[in-house]
Design a protein around this nucleic acid. Structure first.
Length: 888
RNA sequence: GGGCGAUUAGCUCAGCGGGAGAGCACUACAUUGACAUUGUAGGGGUCACUGGUUCAAUCCCAGUAUCGCCCA
C-alpha cells in the first residue's frame, strides 16, 4: 500500500510522534529477544525517581542511551534497554509529607506507619507513570514489558538476600559512631548526602579560665553552643605559646567541668587563637582527637538538635534547666551573651566557613552519636578498584577513573540505615535483651532466636542507593538464575552523569563484583551536566530551568535529541541555548523537504540501485560520500563520540546531499537522457534511504515517518539494517571530477558576488588556457555549470577578452566578460587581495621547504605535500598576476 | 589545603604535532528552485600569557593568570 499522498510542505512533529511511538511499542519493536541468535546488547537505565518528572539531565542521559540502543539494534544486536524507576526514599517521603500538610491531613506520625505507607504507594501509583510517559515522549526505546521498580517484589527479594548475605559475611554491621544527623528529617544520612556550603558567620574567641587561677587560655570556635559538651582543649604540640599549659586543666565556663589542655596536631597554630575546644560528641574531627587523647564524648543535643543535658555529666551543673531544651541557635546566642556577661569573650571575628547541609532537606546537619547499620565499604571497594585498574570496566572519557580511584581509596563506612518509613525495612529483629537476628524473613529470624522469644523488627529502612546498587542484576531476576540474567549480565555500557559516580556507579561495581563475581558493565560513559545558556546549573530557585517537555512541544523530540547529542562532547558541560534546538528543528525540516524533492522527481519509484555499478561520476561520487558518512557516524558512535556522529550525519545530509548532490542532480533529473535520469533517480533514493538509516538513532521520528511515507516498506526503519560499506565505495576519479565542478561553481559564484554581478543575471563564461582534461570536464558539465553558476553560455578562447573579471582554477583562467558593468579598480583590488593571500601561503611554505632541519627530519609525505602545495600556489599566483596585468 | 578541568571568531563550542573549523549572530545579494524553518557570497581569530621540547606547537611539557567543578 504505497502511500501516494504528497508530503506536506512542512513537517509537524507533534502530529506524528505519538502515533509512531505507539506503533513501535505495540508491535513489540523495543522488546529484547527479537533476535535470539544475535549477540545481546544491554543497557540498564539509571532509574529516575518514581515520582519525578523529566528534566534536561534525564533528556540528555536517555537520548544518549537511546542513540546507542537504536544504533546497536540496527546493527543486528539483540538489544535490551532495561527500564524502571527508583523509590527514592527521602525525596518521595518528603513529597508525600508535604502533600499531607498542604491538604490539612494528619501528619505522618499521627497516621502511623502502615497508613502512611499506603498513602505513599497510592501516590506512587498515581504519579509513577509520569516519568515513563515522558521518556516515551522523548522516543526512548526501552523494553517496557520488563519495567521494574526498586520496591517491587523481585527487587525487594534481592535486597533481603544481599543484606543478609553481607551481614553473615561480616560486611554489614551495626555500630555506634558519629553520623550525619538531619534534625529536620530525624534520620541519619550518608556522607554523600551532605553538602558543604560556604557560610558567613563568626569565629568566637572565648577565654577559658585555668583551674589554678593563673590566667586563661583563649579558644576559638565556630560553634559556641557545643561548648557545653567540651571535654578538652587542644593546642599544637610545637606551639611555643601554649607549651607550658599542656596538662593543666581549665574550668569549662557555665558548666563548671574541669577539662584538660592536651597536645594534638589537629590544633592549627595559624587558625584562630591556636587553641581549639574539643567536643567529641558533636564534631567529626573532635571525635578523632577525643579517641586519640582519651577524652570522653558527652552528648548534649537531642534528635531535634535542641540542647539536651540529661547526660550524667551535667548532673552537677548549676541552673541547667535554663539551658535544657533550647534550640541550638538560641543556645548559641545565650552562650555568647552569658560569656560576655562573665567577661570571658576575648573577641568576635567575622569568619567564612563550611556548614554541612542535608542535600534534600536543606537542614544544617549535626554530627550525632547513634546506632546505625554500616557496610564495610573499604573491603568491598578493593575488587571494584582492581576491576577498573585492570580495564574490566573502563570509564569514557578515561579521566573519570581518577575521580573514582580517589574516592574508592579513601572510602568510609557506608551508613545504610535511615530513620524513614518509605523504603526497604531492614531485615533485623531484636529480642528483649537487644540481641539481633538478621534473616530474610521473620520466620527465619524466629527460628534463630528460638521458639517463643518475642521479637521486634528494626524500624529503620535502607538507604535508597542500597537497592540501586543491585540494579544491573536485580532487574534481570537475581537472585533467581533467570535466562535473562545469564544472557544480559554483565551489561554493556552504563550511561550516566558524573554526579552519581560515587552514589551509584561505585556501589554497583562493588555489589556486582561481590554477588555476580563479574563487573556490571564493561564501559561507563560519563556525560556532562546540562547547564543554562550562561553556564549556570539549572535550578528551580534560579528560575533558569529549561523544561525539555516545553522544548519538545515547540520544536519536536527529534530536535531536542539532536541538539543534546550534537553538544555532548566529552569532558565538557553542555550550555544549552534554545537557538541550537531551533537550528536542528530546521535540520529536520531540511530532511523532510529533501524527501519531498525526491518524491517530486519520482525517485522513490525508481528501480534498485547497485552502488557498485554506478556509471556516472555524480552517482559514483555520491556513493563515496555515503560511504564516508556511514563510516564517520559508525566510528564516532563506537567511540561514544556523539557530537562527531551527529555532526557527521548533519554535514552529509545538509552539505553533501542537499547543497551539492541534489543541485548537481537536477539537470539529469529534469533532462532528456532517460538512462542517466533513471540511474540518478535510483541513486537518489538509495542515498536518501542511507541518510534515513544514519540519522535514525538521533532523530527517530522524522526518519521513520519519511521512511514510511516515501515507499512501500515491509518493516519499520527502526528495525532496518545499519549500513556498512567498504572503502572501495570511494571512487577517487569521480571525486576529482565532482570536486573540480564544485570548485568551478564556487569560484564563479564568488567572483560574481564580489564584483556585484546581479545574482539573477546570466553572464557568459570564457575559459582561457584549459587543458584537455578541463575541456572535457567543461563539455560534460556544461548544463549543470551553467545552471548553478548562472551562466548564459560557456566558450573557450586563447586570450582573455577586454574588460573581464577573472579567476583561476588549476591551469585555466575563467573570465566573465562584463565590459559595461565592470569596475576596473574594484577588480584590480580584488585580484590584488587574492594575490597577497596566495603570496602569504607561498612565503610560509617556501620558508618551510628552505629549512634544512625540516628537509632532513620531516616525513617524506609531508615534504611532498608541501612541495605540491607550493607549486599549486605559485601557479595560481602567476595566473592571478597575469589577470591583474591584463587590466592595465 | 587536595584533585580534576577550562581559556580557540561577537556568542556557544569542536578540533589538533605539519594548510585555523562548525552552528548561531552579523553584512550584502537572491523569491526560477524540495525547502525563507531557504539559498549564494562575505567580514571576523597573536588559538589566555611566559618559557621549554621539536625540523615544525593552537596541539606536548613547565610555570603564570583568570574561571569553573569535586573532595576535605
Amino acid at each position: 500500500m504505497a502511500d501516494s499522498s504528497k508530503l506536506d510542505k512542512t513537517f509537524d512533529p507533534t502530529a506524528i510522534e505519538t502515533r509512531l511511538y505507539e506503533a513501535w511499542e505495540s508491535e513489540g519493536c523495543f522488546k529484547a529477544g527479537r533476535a535470539p541468535e544475535a549477540e545481546p546488547y544491554t543497557i540498564v537505565i539509571p532509574p529516575p525517581n518514581v515520582t519525578g518528572s523529566l528534566h534536561m539531565g534525564h533528556a540528555l542521559n536517555n537520548t544518549l542511551q537511546d542513540i546507542l540502543c537504536r544504533f546497536e539494534r540496527m546493527r543486528g544486536r539483540d538489544v535490551l534497554w532495561q527500564p524502571g524507576t527508583d523509590h527514592a526514599g527521602i525525596a518521595t517521603q518528603m513529597v508525600v509529607e508535604r502533600q499531607l500538610a498542604e491538604q490539612g491531613n494528619e501528619s505522618r506520625r499521627e497516621m502511623g506507619r502502615e497508613k502512611f505507607l499506603e498513602r505513599v504507594w497510592q501516590w506512587k501509583e498515581e504519579s509513577g507513570s509520569t516519568i515513563t510517559r515522558q521518556l516515551r515522549r522523548l522516543g526512548a526505546s526501552c523494553d517496557w514489558s520488563r519495567e521494574r521498580f526498586t520496591m517491587d517484589a523481585g527487587l525487594s527479594k534481592a535486597v533481603l538476600k544481599v543484606f543478609v548475605t553481607l551481614y553473615e559475611q561480616g560486611l554489614i554491621y551495626k555500630d555506634k559512631r558519629l553520623v550525619n544527623w538531619d534534625p529536620g528529617l530525624l534520620t541519619a544520612i550518608s556522607d554523600l548526602e551532605v553538602e558543604q556550603r560556604e557560610t558567613n558567620s563568626h569565629l568566637w574567641h572565648f577565654n577559658y579560665p585555668l583551674e589554678d587561677g593563673s590566667g586563661h587560655i583563649t579558644v576559638a570556635t565556630t560553634r559556641p553552643e557545643t561548648m557545653l559538651g567540651d571535654t578538652g582543649v587542644a593546642v599544637h604540640p610545637e606551639d611555643e605559646r601554649y607549651k607550658d599549659l599542656i596538662g593543666k586543666n581549665v574550668v569549662l565556663p557555665i558548666v563548671g567541668r574541669l577539662i584538660p589542655i592536651i597536645a594534638d596536631e589537629y590544633a592549627d597554630p595559624e587558625k584562630g587563637s591556636g587553641a581549639v575546644k574539643i567536643t567529641p560528641a558533636h564534631d567529626f574531627n573532635d571525635f578523632e582527637v577525643g579517641k586519640r587523647c582519651g577524652l570522653a564524648a558527652i552528648n548534649m543535643l537531642d534528635q531535634h538538635a535542641a540542647i539536651d543535658l540529661s547526660d550524667e555529666a551535667f548532673d552537677t551543673m548549676d541552673r541547667k534547666d535554663e539551658w535544657h531544651g533550647l534550640d541550638r541557635y538560641e543556645a548559641r546566642k545565650n552562650i555568647v551573651a552569658t560569656l560576655e556577661g562573665l567577661g570571658l569573650v576575648d573577641k568576635i571575628e567575622p569568619d567564612t566557613h563550611m556548614v554541612p547541609y542535608g542535600d534534600r532537606s536543606n537542614q544544617v546537619i549535626e554530627p550525632w552519636l547513634t546506632d546505625q547499620w554500616y557496610v564495610d565499604a573499604e573491603a568491598m571497594a578493593k575488587p571494584a578498584i582492581e576491576a577498573v585498574k585492570s580495564g574490566a570496566t573502563k570509564f569514557v572519557p578515561p579521566n573519570w577513573d581518577k575521580t573514582y580511584f580517589e574516592w574508592m581509596n579513601n572510602i568510609q563506612p557506608w551508613c545504610i540505615s535511615r530513620q524513614l518509613w518509605w523504603g526497604h525495612q531492614i531485615p533485623a529483629w531484636y529480642d528483649e535483651d537487644g540481641n539481633v537476628f538478621v534473616a530474610e524473613s521473620e520466620e527465619a529470624a524466629q527460628a534463630q532466636a528460638g521458639e517463643g522469644v518475642a521479637l521486634t523488627r528494626d524500624e529503620d529502612v535502607l538507604d535508597t542507593w542500597f537497592s540501586s546498587a543491585l540494579w544491573p542484576f536485580s532487574t534481570l531476576g537475581w537472585p533467581d538464575e533467570t535466562p535473562e540474567l545469564a544472557r544480559h549480565y554483565k551489561t554493556d555500557v552504563l550511561v550516566t552523569g558524573f554526579d552519581i559516580i560515587f552514589f551509584w556507579v561505585a556501589r554497583m561495581m562493588m555489589s556486582g563484583l561481590h554477588f555476580k563475581d563479574e563487573v556490571p558493565f564493561h564501559t561507563v560513559y560519563v556525560h556532562a551536566l546540562v547547564r543554562d545558556e550562561k553556564g549556570q546549573k539549572m535550578s528551580k530557585s534560579k528560575g533558569n530551568v529549561v523544561d525539555p517537555l516545553e522544548i519538545m512541544d515547540k520544536y519536536g523530540a527529534d530536535a531536542l535529541r539532536f541538539t543534546l547529542s550534537a553538544m555532548a562532547a566529552m569532558g565538557r558541560d553542555i550550555k544549552l541555548a534554545e537557538s541550537r534546538v531551533e537550528g536542528y528543528r530546521n535540520f529536520a525540516t531540511k530532511l523532510w523537504n529533501a524527501a519531498r524533492f525526491c518524491e517530486m522527481n519520482d525517485c522513490f519509484e525508481a528501480g534498485e540501485f547497485d552502488p557498485t555499478k554506478a556509471s556516472l561520476p555524480l552517482t559514483q561520487w555520491l556513493v563515496g560520500e555515503v560511504a564516508r558518512a556511514q563510516n564517520a557516524v559508525t566510528t564516532a558512535l563506537e567511540a561514544y563520540r556523539f557530537n562527531d556522529a551527529s555532526n557527521g550525519v548533519y554535514q552529509f545530509i545538509w552539505n553533501s546531499f542537499c547543497d551539492w548532490y541534489v543541485e548537481l542532480a537536477k539537470p539529469a533529473l529534469q533532462g532528456a537522457d532517460g538512462v542517466a535520469k533513471a540511474e540518478v533517480q535510483a541513486a537518489t533514493k538509495w542515498a536518501m534511504d542511507q541518510a534515513l538509516r544514519l540519522l535514525h538513532p538521533f532523530m527517530p521520528f522524522v526518519t521513520e515517518e519519511v521512511w514510511a511515507k516515501t515507499a512501500q516498506r515491509d518493516n519499520h526503519l527502526m528495525l532496518d539494517v545499519w549500513p556498512n560499506f567498504p572503502e572501495s565505495f570511494i571512487n577517487e576519479a569521480a571525486d576529482a571530477e565532482v570536486s573540480w565542478l564544485i570548485a568551478a561553481i564556487g569560484e564563479i559564484r564568488s567572483v560574481r558576488s564580489e564584483m556585484n554581478v546581479p545574482a539573477g543575471a546570466q553572464v557568459p563564461l570564457v575559459v582561457v588556457g584549459a587543458d584537455a582534461a578541463t575541456q572535457k570536464r567543461l563539455s560534460e558539465t556544461n548544463a549543470v555549470l551553467k545552471r548553478l553558476a548562472r551562466l548564459a553560455d560557456i566558450s573557450e578562447a586563447d586570450a582573455v577578452p577586454e574588460g573581464a573579471v577573472q579567476t583561476v582554477l588549476g591551469e585555466a583562467t575563467f573570465a566573465l566578460p562584463l565590459a559595461d558593468v565592470i569596475d576596473v579598480d574594484a577588480e584590480k583590488a580584488r585580484l590584488a587581495k587574492d594575490i597577497s593571500k596566495v603570496e602569504g601561503e607561498i612565503k610560509k611554505i617556501s620558508g618551510k621547504l628552505g629549512n634544512q632541519g625540516f628537509m632532513d627530519k620531516a616525513p617524506e609525505a609531508v615534504i611532498e605535500e608541501n612541495k605540491a602545495r607550493l607549486a599549486e600556489e605559485e601557479a595560481r599566483r602567476d595566473k592571478l598576476q597575469s589577470a591583474l596585468a591584463r587590466l592595465g
